[in-house]
Design a binder for these strands. Structure first.
Length: 203
DNA sequence: GAGTGCCA
DNA sequence: AAGG
């Protein structure tokens, strides 16, 4: 029993303003604790190029990339365990997806002005029948949704602070990415930028 | 602005 | 190629 989305784009379910301002601020406070335990870093692609997005994770696994490729790791690159996923994130996951299963990973992506993420698929998980849930905080981000195969036409939507998107079912393996951050569009983060949380069942 | 190709 |  999951909630109905306010909007669907290519099967991606979008719940606009699923979090009010107070909930966003509370989440931000939780994220400060996550970042203290597991500081942000910019991973390298397998060709040694640093990604413009900074990231960290919470949960049993964190997403990681270096010259050896993409994967989930049980520890932050510093060697410490990833901190626990904030309770408010877990509650939102269960409220929106209606699932009993708890996510193994909450990836925290931080986009400063000019940071982008190219079109890609989330396919480092063992079972694609579990959805991926995404929470937007801070400045607006231009989210682009493509196809199951590389190439072809795409559609874009501006995601705002408090919006939640779910890639599940037929949309689970769609290519997607972030083309642009609209600096100064939100007052949530004093220093500006966009935070995106993505929750996943890994194994 | 969007889509395609291509790089190593 | 989760980049340019």
């Amino acid at each position: 029993m999951s909630l109905p989305p306010s909007l669907t784009l290519r099967g991606v379910q979008i719940y606009q303003q699923a979090l009010d301002r107070a909930a966003q601020e509370a989440l931000l406070e939780d994220l400060r604790a996550v970042q203290r335990a597991a500081p942000l870093f910019s991973p390298e692609t397998r060709f040694g190029r640093k990604m413009s997005v900074q990231m960290t994770s919470a949960g049993k696994y964190g997403w990681y990339s270096d010259r050896r490729g993409y994967r989930y790791e049980r520890r932050h690159p510093s060697g410490v365990d990833w901190p626990p996923i904030p309770q408010a994130v877990l509650e939102l996951w269960h409220r929106i997806t209606g699932l009993d299963r708890t996510p193994d990973c909450c990836l925290v992506n931080f986009y400063r002005e000019g940071a982008r993420m190219g079109l890609h698929q989330d396919r480092d998980e063992a079972d694609f029948s579990w959805p991926v849930l995404s929470i937007s905080l801070g400045d607006d981000g231009l989210f682009r949704i493509g196809n199951l195969e590389r190439g072809g036409p795409t559609e874009s939507i501006w995601l705002q602070s408090g919006d939640v998107a779910v890639l599940g079912g037929e949309a689970r393996l769609l290519h997607h990415g972030v083309d642009k951050i609209r600096a100064g569009s939100s007052t949530l983060l004093a220093q500006g930028g966009r935070i995106n949380l993505t929750c996943r069942v890994v194994d």
